[in-house]
C-alpha cells in the first residue's frame, strides 16, 4: 500500500502512522455532552470507503486525511488535515 503525501509524494505505507476516523477533526463545542459522546465513541464501520487520519511519521510530519476503500485497499484521495480542518 502506498500513500501519495501532498508534500513528499508517493511513499511506502510503513512511513505512516494510522490514528482513526477523520471525525476527530470535527470537535464539538464544549458542554454538549451528547455530541462529545458521539465524537469520542460512535463510529461508522463501513465495508467500503472511509476517511481516516494518517500521520506521515517518518516523512514530513504532516497529518493527512486519506480516503480509502477498505475492501479493495484502493486509495481514493489524500489531503492535508490542516486544509480539511480550515
Amino acid at each position: 500500500m502506498r500513500i501519495n503525501c501532498p508534500i513528499c509524494g508517493d511513499r511506502d505505507r510503513r512511513e505512516f502512522y494510522y490514528l482513526g476516523a477523520s471525525d476527530y477533526l470535527n470537535r464539538p463545542a464544549e458542554g454538549d455532552l451528547d455530541a462529545i459522546h458521539k465524537y469520542l465513541h460512535i463510529r461508522e464501520n463501513p465495508a467500503g470507503v472511509t476517511k481516516d487520519l494518517w500521520h506521515h511519521e517518518a516523512g514530513c510530519s504532516s497529518w493527512l486525511v486519506v480516503e480509502r476503500n477498505v475492501t479493495t485497499h484502493e486509495i481514493l484521495g489524500v489531503e492535508l488535515a490542516s486544509e480539511v480542518a480550515k
Binding site: C8, D10, R11, D12, R14, E15, E57, A58, G59, C60
Partner: peptide, 22 residues
C-alpha cells in the same frame, strides 16, 4: 530504504527510514 531513490537528484532531501531508523 523505502524511497524511490532513482527519482532523487543531487541536492534532493527526503525524510524516510533506513532499516528501522528515521
Amino acid at each position: 530504504c523505502p524511497l524511490d531513490l532513482g527519482r532523487m537528484g543531487e541536492g534532493d532531501v527526503a525524510r524516510s527510514f533506513v532499516g528501522h531508523m528515521t
